[in-house]
Design a protein around this nucleic acid. Structure first.
Lengths: 333, 333
DNA sequence: TGAGCCCGTGGAATCGATTACACGGAGGAT
DNA sequence: ATCCTCCGTGTAATCGATTCCACGGGCTCA
């Protein structure tokens, strides 16, 4: 592969001049400029980004450590992140943590080794020393969706409190009183928050959230299935199950179906995170929709701000309730 | 960030010795080795992958240019690719082409600039000069799922012919005779092949595939919707619509639903690519399942073989039919 | 005791870019 | 005519690693 020296030789100038042309530096004669351009075209020369990065100490690459690529919410997030990053002249290197702290650490380490300019993370846990150290050492970093308390890093996320209140109001209006939740891992903020928001909303209606109605899931399909089976085995099973993410909702659907029960006649189902398939499931699933695209774009902007020396602000966007049929007939529109 | 010089100074040895310790070179004294280790730990030193890559001319990174990240088939593929790559000591840099040749080219160019060791592509078109040149210039490359004829690059894909025959047999057995297909872009191999396989399978039953029953889609939801509307407007609409990918099937479902029609009573629906949501759609959708994980792993192995100087073989794996209820009641099990 | 080897080590070149610094020549001001 | 300034250019240092080569010392063996 041709290097800058080859171009210089071909154009009959020094490598410095070639570099200046490539970087649009003003002080190059028109003559030299055209000769270099010609040489570049003739050789099909492309600058070696590795060498450039070594010299300039910037890679123009962002790391994105995502909790789970198989979760449509995160793939949508990844897509908007890449889009915005591309618009700003950055590439994105994605690492999939599969909700496993060890994998998350592996990716953070690899990305740091590759000297990405900044890191976007939705932490699967409370934060390993590695990540905390990186944040403290000044690696530009932004948390998306989930975050770690007590770390000085901007957070871009969605606040589901109001939407959860709307959901509970909706359920209460349909006459449901025994409401259960499949929670996410307590080590994640979203795992905890959604339970709290649910509990508070229930309290507003004088309803209780007994321990038996809090199932511990891990944001994966199987846990949704397992927890739902537990709910159904209860002497007094809940009337509605609220899954804290879309994959656990899928597991819940599996479990209900496996018992020969029907949604919503026998059990209602609602989910956090709306995905396009929920329109066509049997029945269509009532869900809380996050402004995923906006989240991804805001996160990239905050990160790039940090990288380029600007403040880089936290952003919180509201989520909203999308009522479908999985909890009973909706009120006539 | 600490460099190898800092480690050398801290340990009281030369950078050469530090490098040897880091790379497990045998000829280093135990004494020097422990001193270097201590210095590494004390400084929290991590080798700069950029510098290493420049010197060794390898990045231990693979590029994966995927047709569409929002398509669950491809995200599953991406996941298995990353998994296998990680097991072999490589990272994966993903580029999302969104079925757009210009975006595909952008990513190929960026990845090449970053000097990834090899490229995994599922081409969205017949191949830009850029990609063809790269292949000819000897960049290790492997095509996954889709490929470009006439280029000397291993292909890892799934053969759906047998499964399509099974599908047609199934449909014929249910009494359906007017069968239509939503095709993918003619510029892609999968876009063309699936139509051909369908046509041949129909022919075996003495059935014809009239032009009116071939809708031109682009593997995206909207096109599935649009084509299906066209089918439903026909004086004699098809009894079953076969979508060449899962997203177009979703669009088809939208279109049918919007007309107030039911699947399978009014129109049957089948899809290429099976995804977990198909179990819970209304009705569950009959689909052709590819061994996606195996495909991803085989592709990585083939690519790494090429990179490391071994042959790197093409692989073709069979797909299989998964019968559900979207084309009518299945035969009793 | 001297020749030859092997082992552990360090010096320095190298990868491909960017950029500070120096230098020669042209042109303007005095 | 002399001096100063600017412009376009090249030389060389630099980024952080890897690795070839040379060197000194201890060993074995004759």
């Amino acid at each position: 592969m041709a290097s800058i020296k080859d171009v210089a030789a071909e154009a009959g100038v020094s490598v410095a001049t070639v570099s200046r042309v490539l970087n649009g530096h003003p002080s190059v004669s028109t003559d030299a400029r055209t000769r270099v351009q010609a040489a570049v075209d003739a050789l099909g020369y492309r600058p070696n980004a590795v060498a450039r990065s070594l010299r300039t100490d910037q890679t123009r690459a962002l790391g994105l450590v995502i909790s789970d690529v198989l979760n449509p919410y995160f793939t949508e997030l990844a897509r908007s992140v890449e889009e915005e990053a591309r618009a700003l002249g950055y590439s994105v290197v994605i690492g999939n943590a599969d909700e496993r702290p060890d994998l998350q650490d592996h990716h953070v380490r690899t990305l740091l080794d590759r000297r990405i300019d900044g890191l976007l993370v939705s932490p699967t846990d409370g934060g390993s020393p590695l990540m905390l150290d990186a944040a403290r050492a000044g690696t530009p970093m932004v948390f998306v969706d989930r975050w770690i308390p007590g770390v000085d890093v901007p957070v871009v996320r969605s606040d589901g409190r109001a939407a959860v209140r709307d959901l509970v109001a909706h359920l209460h209006g349909l006459g449901h009183r025994r409401l259960a939740i499949i929670a996410g891992p307590a080590a994640t903020t979203t795992g905890r928050e959604r339970v709290e928001a649910f509990r508070e909303a229930l309290a507003a209606y004088g309803l209780d959230l007994p321990d038996a109605y809090i199932g511990q899931g891990d944001f994966q399909v199987d846990s949704g299935r397992r927890v739902t089976e537990g709910f159904l085995d209860l002497p007094e099973p809940p009337q509605v199950v609220f899954a804290a993410d879309n994959l656990m909702a899928l597991g819940a659907l599996d479990a209900v179906r496996a018992r020969g029960l029907r949604v919503p006649e026998d059990v209602g189902l609602a989910a956090f995170d709306d995905i396009r398939w929920f329109v066509h499931t049997d029945p269509p699933i009532t869900a809380i929709a996050q402004p995923t695209g906006d989240l991804g774009r805001a996160a990239v902007r905050a990160l790039v701000d940090r990288i380029e020396g600007r403040p880089g602000e936290s952003v919180t966007l509201p989520a909203r309730l999308v009522v479908r049929r999985s909890c009973g007939e909706p009120a006539p529109a």
